[in-house]
Amino acid sequence: MSDQTSERRFDDRVVVITGGARGLGWAYAELLASLGAKVVVNDNGSALSGSGSDAGPAEEAAQALRAMGAEAVASTDSVATPEGGKAIIETALDAFGRIDVLIHNAGNNRFAALAETSYEDFRAVLDVHLLGAFHVVRPAFERMVKQGYGRVVLTGSIGGLYTMPGTVNYAMSKSGMIGLNNAIAVEGKEFGVKSNLILPGAMTRMAEGLDTSQYPPMGPELVAPVVGFLAHESCPVSGEMYVSVAGRIARAFITETEGVHRPFWTIDEVASQLKAIRDDSRQWTFHPAEDGFAQHLGRSFAMASGQGAG
C-alpha cells in the first residue's frame, strides 16, 4: 500500500495517468488516489512491444481504486494517435468535469541495434512515448490554460540523456521529451501550468530483457512520492528534470561551457582551441522557465560585442 500520511493531498483534483494500470503508473495512481485524487486510469492493455490491446488492466485498476474508496474511471484509448489522446482527456472531462494533473507514463520497448532497427519498430516506440505525450498534452494543456491551473509530469529517462545500446527509438523519444517539457513550462507559466520530467529507474516489465541481477531494491513505490510532489499544487518548480532511481533523488540539467569567442574562425583554429572550448571549469546553466533562451543569447552576444560573459 502506498504512503497515505502526506500533508499534501489531492482532494477534488482530477488526475489522468497514462499507462496507469501497471508498474510505475499503478504506483502513482494508488498513491494519489489514497490522497484524495479522482483518477482516470488510462491503459490500453498492450503487450510490452505496444502490440495488441486488453481492456482488463485499466478496468481492474479502476475497480481497485474504487475499492479503496477513491473515485476512479478506466480509459482504454491509445496514446499513439491524436484521436486516442483527445479521448483520454475527454474521459476526465466527461467523468469529473476538469483535468488538474496529467502524468504521461505510457511506454513500450522494441530493442534493436541502430543498424538493424526497422522503421516500424522505430515509429512504434516514438508513437507511444514521444508523440503519445503530445497527443495527451495538447488537449490537456488547452484546458489547463483556460482554467488557470495545471500540473504535467512527463516521463523521461536517463536513457534519453546517456543512452544504452539497442535503444535508438527509446533514446530519441526520451530526449525529445525535454523539449516538450520546456514548451509546457515556458508557455504555461503565466497560466499557472507547470511541467516537470521524471527520470525513473524501477523494476517493472519495461526492464524485461535487461540483466538486473545486481540491482538494489528499485520498486515503483520509491518513485511515486517524487511524482506526487511534482504533481501537487505546492510544487514550486517547472521545466526541470528529476532523477529517481533506487531511492536516490537528484536534479538533472543541461549545462554549457563558457566557451571561446573569436570574430573569425578557421577549421584549424577550432581544432587548436578545442581544449578551451571544452573546458568545464566555467559553466553556464540556464533555466527554461526563467527566460533561459533569452539569457543564453544575451550572454553569447555580450561575448561577441567584447563585453565579456556577464
Rank of each mutant, 00 (worst) to 15 (best):
M1H: 13
Q4R: 15
T5K: 03
V14E: 02
T18V: 10
W26R: 03
Y28H: 08
A29Y: 10
E30D: 14
V41R: 02
D43K: 07
A47D: 06
S51I: 13
A55N: 12
P57K: 05
E59G: 09
Q63D: 13
R66D: 02
A72L: 04
D77K: 14
P82T: 14
I89Y: 04
A95Q: 00
N109S: 13
R110D: 07
E116G: 12
S118L: 12
E120I: 15
R123P: 01
H129G: 09
V137E: 05
R138H: 15
P139N: 08
F141N: 01
K146P: 07
Y149V: 02
T155K: 01
G156Y: 13
Y162S: 05
M164T: 13
S173E: 01
G179S: 11
N182R: 05
V186C: 11
V193Q: 02
K194H: 13
L199N: 08
P200W: 08
T204C: 05
D211S: 15
E221Y: 15
G228S: 06
F229P: 02
C235Y: 10
C235S: 03
P236K: 13
M241F: 08
R251F: 12
W265G: 04
I267P: 09
Q273T: 03
L274N: 06
D280P: 06
S281M: 03
W284T: 04
F293W: 12
Q307T: 14
